[in-house]
Structure formats: C-alpha cells, structure tokens
C-alpha cells in the first residue's frame, strides 16, 4: 500500500491570482508593450530624430519613402512623415488619455449619484443619458463640425462629452446594487453623509468596473479622434494627430501616395488594439463579470 501525500495547493491572494490571469493573457501583455513602445516613439522620438513640423517646404512635397532624409517620405506641404507620426502620436495619445479619463470621471460621478440617490433624480439623470445615447456620436460630431473647429482642449471636452454615457450607465447599475449593502447602511446609520457614502464606499467598490471601462474609453477616444478628422473637425495645421494625417492622406489614394495613409492608420489600429487588450486583461485581473469574459 502506498501512501499518497496530498499537499494542498499553495494559496494565493486575489491580487496575485488576478495578476497571473493578466499576464497569462498574452494579448494584454502585448498591449502594454505596444503602448510603452509608442510612448517612447512619440515622446522621445523627436529628441532622437528632430524634424521641422512647423515650417513648410514646398520644394519637397509628396516625396516617397526613401527620399534623402525622409525615411517615410513627405506630405503635401513638405513635412517629414516619420517626424509627423511622432508629433501626431503625442496629440492622439494625449487627447485619448485625457478624454478617456474625463469621460470616466463624469460618467462615474453621474452614475454613482443617480444610482445612489434613486427616485426622481435618478429618473431625470438617466433620461439625460438615454437622450445622449439616442443621438449617434458621429451625427453629433458632424453637427459640431458645422459649428466649430476645435483646439486640443476643446477636442478633449467634445470627446469626453460624447463618451461619458456608457460609464454612467455601468456605474449606476453597480451603485444601485451596492447601496443596499450592509456597510453602506451601517455608515448611514452612524450618521455619515450621502457624499461620504458615495465617495468613500460606492466609488471605491466599483473601481474594478471603472478602471476596466476607463481603459476601453481611452481606446474609443483615440478612435474618435480619428473620426473627428474624417468628419471635418480636425486640428488646424501645423498641429496634427494621426486621424488628421489619415484623413489628409486619403485624398491622395488614387495618386498612389500610400505612405500618407498607411503609417498613420496602422499606428491608430495598433494603439487602440493595445488599449483594448489591456482593458480585457484588466477585466481578468479585477475578476469583473466573472472569469468568463
């Protein structure tokens, strides 16, 4: 008779288990690496490879890649494309992060308050959200393009205002389920204020949902930056972002100027993909919505 010793599996904290899941998600890891590389490319790149993105050079326009001093060619006013990708990336990523955070902050507060307070306030706040959802984002952006041409801060606000609806809904749902939890009831019984309840308990306990959603918001924001240019609201030259580069490049499709289109497009796809992957991985990390998504 042999004795089989059963040893209990090593116990891991939820955090450690989450981390393991995150790292096991190969796409998420790819996402982090990609973002890191892009940040280096966009923000440190110009130090290593400085180009003049302010002065035009009408004698060297539309040069294909490989022309002297221009590894990715030049555009229709002579800006170097590779340098422009770096500068454009700074703006795209900046706007994406800022707008994503803004949307999450507004949405979270809105949803938390609506869910917590409930009743008529909740109804009114949610009708506003419904109205926002009923207007498609592209339609709204197109109307805005007939009214204004935004600067970077304005773009952040516009994208933030188009995107806060989803976090609002999510956080409200969580807020509703949380507000009847015991510790919140206990807090109120002890005389704590509503705002304390919201800020100290509801919001922190929805952190998982919020952070995951924030990451997806950033991804969507970077995509929206691209759409904004396509819809006619792009930044004024010489400022640029990847979306503006892509849109300007598209007018030259039939001229065969692929270097004005694909580099910017690929950058957008990779970055957005990366943020989406990270978001997915974070969902595993926080164990949001079960282990299944």
């Amino acid at each position: 008779m042999s004795t089989v010793t059963l040893s209990a599996p090593p116990t891991r904290s939820p955090r450690q288990r989450g981390l393991r899941r995150f790292l096991g998600n190969r796409l998420a890891v790819f996402g982090i690496v990609t973002i890191a590389l892009f940040l280096i490319f966009c923000f440190l790149g110009p130090l290593v490879y400085p180009t003049d993105q302010v002065h035009t050079d009408l004698k060297s326009t539309m040069l294909p890649p490989g022309a002297a001093g221009h590894p990715l060619g030049t555009d229709d006013v002579g800006y170097d494309v590779l340098g422009r990708l770096m500068v454009g990336g700074q703006i795209s990523i900046l706007i994406g992060l800022a707008a994503g955070v803004l949307a999450t902050v507004i949405g979270t507060l809105w949803g938390a308050i609506a869910g917590y307070v409930g009743g008529a306030v909740d109804a009114v706040m949610m009708r506003v959200v419904d109205a926002g959802i009923a207007i498609p984002a592209t339609f709204l952006l197109l109307i805005l393009s007939a009214i204004m041409r935004p600067s970077v801060p304005l773009m952040i606000i516009v994208i933030g205002f188009v995107s806060w609806l989803v976090p609002a809904r999510l956080v409200r749902a969580e807020s509703i389920s949380l507000k009847s939890r015991e510790y919140v009831l206990a807090l109120r019984a002890m005389g704590g204020t509503h705002s304390r309840a919201v800020l100290r308990h509801i919001v922190p306990n929805t952190v998982g949902t919020i952070v995951v959603n924030a990451t997806f918001q950033v991804a969507d924001a970077i995509l929206l930056v691209a759409y904004i240019s396509f819809l006619g609201m792009g930044l004024q030259k010489p400022a640029t972002d990847w979306g503006a580069m892509l849109t300007s490049g598209i007018t030259y499709t039939y001229a065969g100027a692929w270097w004005l289109i694909f580099p910017a497009g690929v950058c957008i796809v990779l970055t957005v993909c990366a943020f989406n992957s990270i978001g997915d991985g974070l969902r595993d990390f926080f164990d949001v919505k079960g282990r299944n998504a």
Binding site: L27, A226, G243, G265, V269, C273, S277
Partner: peptide, 14 residues
C-alpha cells in the same frame, strides 16, 4: 476581432 474593432471604419473601407 480586436484588430477590426480597433480600426476606424473609414480606414477599413478604404
């Protein structure tokens, strides 16, 4: 699906 979802639709169409 990730890649498609991350591509602006006008780029995809192009």
């Amino acid at each position: 699906n990730f890649v498609v979802y991350s591509t602006p639709s006008f780029f995809l169409g192009l």
